[in-house]
């Protein structure tokens, strides 16, 4: 059974903007998937549905076999503990150090304080920021800030890592480093879903590409390249 299953998912924003139109797609455990398409194609809606910031208007979404549209409000946090999220704008808290930013993700889900330190250290090691733990976000480069954000996303060992334009604010060289990092995380078993505009990255990585256009699924290639045309 696939880890993530979309069945005829449609999302309509009132009054009548169809953000996603009848999407059916399956993503297996351990896959690395690019979500591509022009602005307004529905990439962000797709991601929001994944961690249930939105609920589908029609259709069914299963994660690990569970319907997430039917989750009760109080169950949503527990879904999100299995999904790490990385944003284009990093979303680090500026008044806290890198260590505190990463530790925050564990503290607020009530991980015992004894466990927090070693887990944060391990996550920082994985993203190569061990020597930046005591620094504040503004003392870091853009690439390092995104690494810190990725450390925060993976510190709870989620099964799925969702990244919405994670290289959108970074130069090409830094972007390639971030992609290398995401690939490593993927090799260690985490399913990675990344929405992006960066065609050069997509083309160089030869991963599965799901292309959306005007809310419709227009292409799903196993080892795809960018491009909206068939």
């Amino acid at each position: 059974m696939s880890l993530i299953q979309f069945y005829n998912v449609t999302k309509v924003y009132q009054p009548h903007i169809t953000a996603l139109d009848d999407i059916s797609v399956k993503i297996d455990k351990g896959e690395f998937v690019f979500l591509v398409g022009p602005s307004g194609a529905g990439k962000t809606t797709f991601i929001r549905l994944l961690f249930r910031e939105e609920v589908p208007t029609r259709g069914q979404i299963l994660i690990g076999g569970r319907s997430i549209a039917r989750l009760k409000r109080r169950e949503v946090p527990f879904l999100r503990r299995n999904i790490g999220i990385v944003f284009q704008d990093f979303r680090l808290l500026p008044e806290w150090t890198v260590f505190e930013n990463v530790a925050f993700a564990l503290r607020v889900i009530e991980v015992s304080p004894r466990e927090i330190k070693p887990r944060v250290e391990k996550a920082l090691e994985r993203v190569g920021l061990s020597n930046r733990a005591r620094m504040f976000p503004h003392q870091l480069s853009g690439g390092e800030q995104q690494r810190a954000a990725i450390a925060r996303a993976i510190v709870n060992n989620p099964r799925i890592l969702v990244a919405d334009e994670p290289t959108g604010n970074l130069d090409p060289a830094t972007s390639r480093e971030i992609m290398k990092l995401l690939e490593e995380i993927n090799y260690q078993g985490t399913t990675v879903i990344m929405a992006t505009h960066a065609w050069d990255i997509v083309n160089s990585m030869r991963k599965r590409v799901i292309a959306l256009q005007q809310g419709r699924l227009v292409r799903d290639d196993r080892e795809g390249a960018y491009g909206y045309e068939a």
Binding site: F51, R73, R74, P77, F78, L79, R80, R81, I85, R91, L93, F104, A105, V108, I109, E110, R152, N156
Partner: peptide, 17 residues
């Protein structure tokens, strides 16, 4: 608000927030 936003994303419960 940014703290709250991140707490929601990393799966803190409403009562914890």
């Amino acid at each position: 608000r940014r703290e709250i936003n991140i707490m929601k994303y990393v799966g803190a419960t409403d009562w914890f927030i």
